[in-house]
Design a protein around this nucleic acid. Structure first.
Lengths: 168, 168
DNA sequence: ACCGTCATGTAATCGGTTACATGATTCT
DNA sequence: AGAATCATGTAACCGATTACATGACGGT
């Protein structure tokens, strides 16, 4: 079995929050990586199970109440994560933006631009708010990632607004 | 059956190049939408078949030689495409960049930045070359899409180079 | 006690990807 | 003629998404 990006997300978050349940994990994802990489809630339940089956995680079941599963990262899991993080990927991300696809196919630039500009303006605002409330002692990785997101959203807004205004 | 983004790519390209074979389509994809939205070659064979089964395309088989299939868009296909293009999506594209994920997880910013900056510099150059060789009478959609790609690659280069230089 | 929402999964589906396989052309 | 590559698919697998289902908890 190969580890996927989802796997590394689970491993990485579980390293910081050992012994949490899938539901708690869901919340952690939403407030962190989820800002630029969505993970549907069912995967938050299935992926830890997969990882546990292969020894990357340890699975414990609560006795009473909801008998829910709590996961902890193992030594094997930690080393797999470290190994991946330590070898810089040269993987390239495509834009894969549905709006761009419509634009390519000849959609009306003004109408499309207005809708998309609005969506990205809103997202940009969210990012800026998050940056404002970032605690001083926060780890550098997430902060840097946030900066990237802000830069890209600014670019998106610039692009779509120009299109909405000039129509080309 | 629902139409996917891949479906619209096939429909859109087939509208411009009626009666082509999957292999030819593969080439068209590579030189157009493929720049920002990759489609594996097997899908270029399977997706037209799916679409033809639902009446969006007409499938014809050559008599001699390789007996390959040639596809043409039908009226149903055209109207489906038009309908999609005409309703501006508010779908939001996440970054989903593996490099960003590594950065978030605490990768060394300098090492990662150097690798990623190089990748994006190269891609940016490719885009600029394409822009230079763009024929004057080209349709506006692809040109605008290209501008978007250039803007984003510039942003990526700026971001990763700063990271490689300053380490934060 | 009841009702609504939160929490926690399982099952089925499906597009996308990887692997494999074979038939034409082209080149030496 | 044989080798290498191009062209054209088929089959199998698998992660991701959608749908469905049920159990706990909190409030009234």
């Amino acid at each position: 079995m190969a580890l996927t990006y989802t796997s590394y997300i689970v491993l990485g978050l579980l390293e910081h929050c050992p012994g949490i349940t899938p539901y708690e994990l869901k919340g952690v994802v939403a407030q962190s990586v989820g800002n630029f990489w969505s993970v549907p809630h069912t995967q938050v339940y299935t992926e830890p199970a997969r990882l546990a089956a292969e020894g990357y995680l340890k699975e414990e079941r609560e006795r009473g109440g909801r008998r829910r599963k709590r996961y902890t990262i193992t030594a094997k899991g930690k080393s797999a994560l470290r190994e991946w993080v330590a070898s810089p990927t040269s993987e390239f991300t495509e834009l894969r933006d549905p709006g761009l696809l419509q634009l390519w196919m000849g959609a009306d630039p003004v109408a499309l631009g207005m809708v998309q500009a609005e969506v990205h303006r809103r997202r940009l605002e969210q990012y800026l708010e998050i940056r404002d409330t970032l605690p001083p002692g926060a780890p550098p990785g997430p902060a840097a990632t946030l900066e990237s997101g802000i830069g890209h959203e600014r670019e998106w807004v610039r692009f779509w607004e120009r299109l909405a205004r000039d129509g080309a």
